[in-house]
């Protein structure tokens, strides 16, 4: 069953110069127990999408969609309070900026205990505070923090970024969510912990059936831990489908460039030689190119590309490009 099913998600910001559309009609769905990767150039709107789903964007952003279903229920048209309740209970998010999401004025113990809802503690009420402490320590162990004594008594600024990130993950899994959205959860971590955390996310996924939306730049980990993949460029979905299929044969030139730019996927790379990269950079939202947004940077662009490509479908593989890399088989 589809747990999350969003159609034409659009996120706009009202500014002095009118509306800016940061995310443009993006479709996104997750089955129960599915792990989906979300990748794309910086500024392409990944974090905005994640924040829109959990409803933490501030009032200046306008979020609209043609469909927003959660566990088969239309929550787009529910009163705000009820939306919040469902999302607060079922969806947890690990933010990109750990130090910004932890309260600098409280010790970790307080923050972690606060994140543990009563319903996950099974025991009589008079044992609650003991159980809660126990659970807090267990959560730290789970994310690979062995030295729980000193960490629990620390303020966030006393800990390294990496440890803060692990604590964030502990807080997110504390409520046993149905969907875990992880926004670049391992950026600040060293490779041993990175591997450990991806394994952790994947074991939460497998043991508890938690769906995971994984936003990450680590294509290697995306390849290993996700079943499906959505690729964004400049606020639009450019490709989506099975992760393995996309990585093996991308249809869209942006996806292709993304894969080729990763040294992990280039076994014969000579040290200190240039990596593959598209020229130029992602346009600002105020000055979007006409037609395909990759146009000015695309090695395959032709004059047809001044027309915006529509999303096309080949079996389970979606893409939006007039000249897919497989040749015009559609």
């Amino acid at each position: 069953m589809l747990l999350l099913d969003i159609k034409n998600l659009t996120i706009e910001l009202s500014t002095a110069n009118g509306l800016i559309r940061a995310v443009d009609r993006v479709n996104l769905s997750l089955r129960e127990g599915e792990t989906r990767g979300l990748v794309g150039e910086s500024g392409s709107g990944k974090s905005l999408i994640a924040k829109a789903i959990v409803g933490v964007l501030n009032k200046r952003w306008r979020v609209t969609a043609d469909r927003f279903n959660w566990a088969g229920k239309d929550i787009l048209n529910l009163p705000y309070e009820q939306q919040r309740k469902i999302i607060g209970r079922d969806i947890a998010m690990i933010y990109q900026e750990p130090s910004r999401s932890l309260d600098p004025t409280a010790v970790i113990l307080e923050q972690l205990e606060e994140a543990i809802p009563a319903h996950v503690l099974d025991g009589p009420w008079w044992k609650r505070s003991y159980l809660r402490r126990h659970k807090a320590i267990a959560l730290l162990h789970k994310v690979g923090i062995r030295d729980h004594q000193s960490v629990l008594q620390s303020y966030p600024y006393q800990l390294s970024e990496g440890i803060c990130q692990k604590i964030m993950i502990a807080m997110a899994v504390a409520k046993s969510p149905k969907l875990l959205i992880a926004d670049e959860p391992t950026t600040a971590l060293e490779s041993t912990t990175q591997a450990q955390l991806f394994r952790l996310l994947s074991s939460i996924n497998q043991l508890k059936g938690t769906s995971v939306l994984l936003i990450s730049h680590e294509l290697e980990s995306i390849a290993r831990y996700t079943q499906t993949l959505s690729v964004l460029y400049c606020g639009q979905l450019v490709e989506a489908g099975e992760t393995a299929a996309i990585l093996k044969q991308p249809f869209h030139p942006y996806t292709n460039a993304l894969i080729k730019s990763v040294p992990e996927f280039q076994p014969d790379l000579v040290p200190k030689t240039p990596l593959y990269a598209l020229p130029g950079s992602i346009p600002v939202l105020q000055h979007l190119p006409i037609g395909c947004r990759l146009g000015p940077r695309c090695p395959n662009a032709r004059k047809e590309c001044v027309k915006t490509p529509a999303i096309e479908r080949l079996q389970n593989h979606y893409f939006s490009c007039h000249f897919p890399l497989t040749g015009k088989t559609v």
Partner: peptide, 21 residues
């Protein structure tokens, strides 16, 4: 200090090329 880690791969490739250059 971990300044390249947070970059997406295509951007990272550009920056790496710039640094090498």
């Amino acid at each position: 200090d971990e300044a390249l880690t947070a970059l997406d791969p295509s951007l990272r490739a550009q920056i790496v090329n710039l640094l090498l250059e």
